[in-house]
Design a binder for these strands. Structure first.
Lengths: 338, 338
DNA sequence: ACTCGTGAATGAAACGTTTCACGATCTCCA
DNA sequence: TGGAGATCGTGAAACGTTTCATTCACGAGT
C-alpha cells in the first residue's frame, strides 16, 4: 500500500548521477552544473522524492528548529506571543515546534523530553515553576533557554517579561482615583512572581493614596487562571455579599469570569463592582461590559524572546544573558467608568 | 560549551555492556536482567543521556506522530478541536505536531512539507482548499489523511464534519419564527462548502416559512473570517443604514465583530438587530450581548478525527474511508430575545 | 557425562542523509 | 605541448539508533 518512499539513492540512479550530487542539488544547488541539476530535479519530481529529515538531521548533527512551550493556548495572550515568536523565527530561518503544557507539569515535562530528543537548538518556555530541575538540566546540557513572561531570580538565562509591579500600580492607582477603598484581587497562585508582583504594585498604589493596604485589599487566590474557575469562586463570594467595590483580576479570562458572576448575581458593573482585567485580549473590548485592562505588548514579548534565543543559539560563546522588561499600559473602558 | 551529548555507545561503555543491551533497556526492558538494567539506568543518569530521536526514527523507519494543521488557532473553535485530537492521540500513544496555517496557503504548504519530511504517520487537516494537488500527492504517497470540519465531495479520504445545512436551517428557522423577514448573512468565502451549506439551510428554512429567499436574504461575503474584518465591513454597511433586522454570521468571531459594529453605530441588539453566531465559543456567552449561536460538538470533532486517522494508520489495508457527520444545536441567548 | 533448552548479552548490519578528500575533464595561456 | 587552475562529480565514511542472528553460560533431564 505505502510503497517505501524513494530515497536519495533512487533519485541518483534515476538521474544517472551519484548520491552526493543529489544531495548537493538539495543543499548547495550552486555547486552543480545546470544540466545535471535539471536532470536531478526532474528525477525528484518523477519519483515524488521527499527528503527524510531524520536522516538529514542525524548526519548534520544539528537542527534548525526551536521549541516553544506555552502555559495555555486557550488564552489569547499566549496565542499572540506565539505569533510573535513565529514571525521572528521565520525571518531567521528557524522552525518553531509549538507545545501547550496546559498548566500541567506532566505535560511540560513530556514536551521538554520530546524537544530534547529532537535536539532542538533552543527552547522558549513559560514554565509552570521558574526553577525546575529539568530546566536546569536542559541548560546544563547546553541547550539555550529563554523564559517568556517570567523572570529568573538567579539570572542564569535570558528572559522577557513585563513589569508586573507597574501593572499592579496602574490598576490600583486607577481604582483608587475613582474612590474605591475596598478592592478584591482575584489572583493566580501567589507562587507565580507575576501574581505576587501585581499584588505588590497594587498595595503600593493603595498605600500611596494614604490607605492601609491590609485593610483595603483582599486577596483571593485561584489555582487555575481561567474563566470557569474564577467564575465559580467569585459567584460563591458574591452570593454571600461582596464587601469590595472593585475587583482586580490577574488576567482577562478571570475578569470575564468575575464579570459573569457579578451580572448573574444581580450586580451592576461598574456601578456595584468595578472590574480591571489584565492582558487586554481582543475579547476584553467585546465583553458584556467592555473591560478596563492592563495591556501588555504581547507580540513584542514573543518577538524579543525569539530574538534573544536565536542570538544565543548562534553565538553561544560570546552570548551574555539579558533580562528584557517591557512596560504595561492602562486601557480604560466601561467596566471602570465612574 | 555544549559538549556533544553522550550517545548510547558512551552509556554502554560506562555501564560495561554492549550498545544492543542499552537499546534493549530503553525499548524492551523486560528482555534484560535486573542487575544489568540497573547498571545501565545509572549510567544513563550519570551521563545525562537523552535518546536521539532522529537516529531512532531513521532506523525504525516509522514515527509515532501525527500532524494537525488547523486554519486559525486564534479561533477557540480550533483550539477545542486540537484538544480533542490530543486527548485521543495521547490515549493511543501518538504524539501530535500542531501547526497553524493561519489561512495562508504558503504556510499550509510549508507545514505539509515539514510533516512529510518528518515522516509523520498521518495528517489531520482543515485545508484552505478541500481539493489540493498537495493533499492528493500526500495521499498518493501513502500518508493517511483526515479532513477536519470539511468534507470531500469525491469521497477519497475520511472526514469529520458537522451538518452545516442543518445549522443554517436552525438559525433561519429561529429568526423567521421571531418574525424577521430581512436577514443578512455574513458569510466566509462561499467557496467553502461550510459557508455555502449554511446558506442553503438558511434559504431552506426561510422558504419553508413561505418567504422568498432571494428577497429575504442578503449575502455578504467576507474573505477573512475574523472579528476585525467583519466589524469593518459591517460598520460600513450600518453607517449607510442596514435594511435587515437580523444577522446570521458564519462564526462567533464574526458575530462579535457585527455586534461591536452594531452597538457602536447606535443600534440596540436584539431590538434593532438580532444576531446569530456559529460555533458557540466560550466567549459568546460573555459578549456585550450574549450571543445566540449554533453549537458544534467541538472536542468530539477532534476526537473522532483522531480516531479515524489512527484507525487508518494501524490498518491501512482493511481500512474503509468514512464520513462522520455530527448534528449542530441551537443555543439561544439575549442577542435574539424578542 | 551428555545433550537440550532457556534466558541473557553480543556485535554487526542497516536506515538515508551530508560531508569531504579525491578524481576527472576542460580551459587557458606560456 | 604541457601544466596550472577551474569546475563538476564521485564514492565512502560517518551520524546514533534498532534489530536480529548468534554466542554464551548454566541448570535440568536422561
Amino acid at each position: 500500500m505505502s510503497p517505501m518512499s524513494p530515497s536519495i539513492k533512487d533519485v541518483a540512479v534515476h538521474a544517472g548521477v551519484s548520491v552526493g550530487t543529489v544531495s548537493n542539488v538539495l543543499n548547495h544547488p550552486e555547486r552543480v552544473a545546470e544540466p545535471t541539476r535539471a536532470a536531478v530535479q526532474s528525477a525528484i519530481a518523477a519519483l515524488g522524492f521527499v527528503r527524510n529529515s531524520s536522516a538529514a538531521q542525524l548526519r548534520a548533527g544539528t537542527s534548525r528548529s526551536i521549541g516553544l512551550i506555552v502555559l495555555d493556548l486557550a488564552n489569547p495572550f499566549f496565542h499572540d506571543v506565539a505569533r510573535g515568536v513565529e514571525q521572528v523565527a521565520d525571518e531567521l530561518g528557524y522552525a518553531v515546534v509549538l507545545c501547550n503544557s496546559d498548566d500541567q507539569t506532566s505535560r511540560e515535562n513530556r514536551y521538554l523530553q520530546v524537544l530534547e530528543e529532537q535536539r532542538v537548538r533552543g527552547v522558549l518556555i513559560t514554565p509552570i515553576e521558574v526553577s525546575s530541575d529539568r530546566l536546569d538540566a536542559l541548560r546544563k546540557r547546553g541547550t539555550p533557554t529563554v523564559l517568556v513572561d517570567r523572570h529568573d531570580p538567579r539570572v542564569n538565562c535570558c528572559s522577557v517579561a513585563v513589569d508586573d509591579v507597574v501593572g499592579g500600580e496602574l490598576a490600583g492607582a486607577h481604582l483608587v482615583t475613582q474612590g474605591h477603598e475596598r478592592i478584591v484581587y482575584f489572583s493566580g497562585p501567589l507562587g507565580l512572581s507575576q501574581c505576587a508582583d501585581r499584588l505588590t504594585g497594587l498595595r503600593r498604589s493603595v498605600a500611596a493614596a494614604g490607605l492601609d493596604p491590609d485593610a483595603a485589599i483582599e486577596v483571593v487566590e485561584i489555582p487555575v487562571m481561567n474563566a470557569r474557575s474564577t467564575h465559580d469562586v467569585a459567584r460563591a463570594r458574591f452570593e454571600q455579599g461582596e464587601p469590595a467595590t472593585a475587583a482586580f483580576c490577574a488576567n482577562d479570562l478571570m475578569a470575564l469570569g468575575v464579570l459573569r458572576a457579578a451580572l448573574s448575581t444581580g450586580r451592576r458593573v461598574p456601578g456595584d463592582l468595578a472590574i480591571v482585567g489584565y492582558d487586554d485580549i481582543e475579547f476584553a473590548a467585546d465583553a458584556a461590559v467592555p473591560l478596563t485592562s492592563i495591556r501588555q505588548p504581547t507580540q513584542q514579548i514573543g518577538r524579543a524572546a525569539a530574538q534573544l534565543l536565536v542570538e544565543e543559539c548562534d553565538n553561544p560563546d560570546t552570548h551574555a544573558h539579558q533580562q528584557v522588561m517591557f512596560k504595561p499600559e492602562l486601557v480604560t473602558r466601561d467596566s471602570t467608568q465612574p
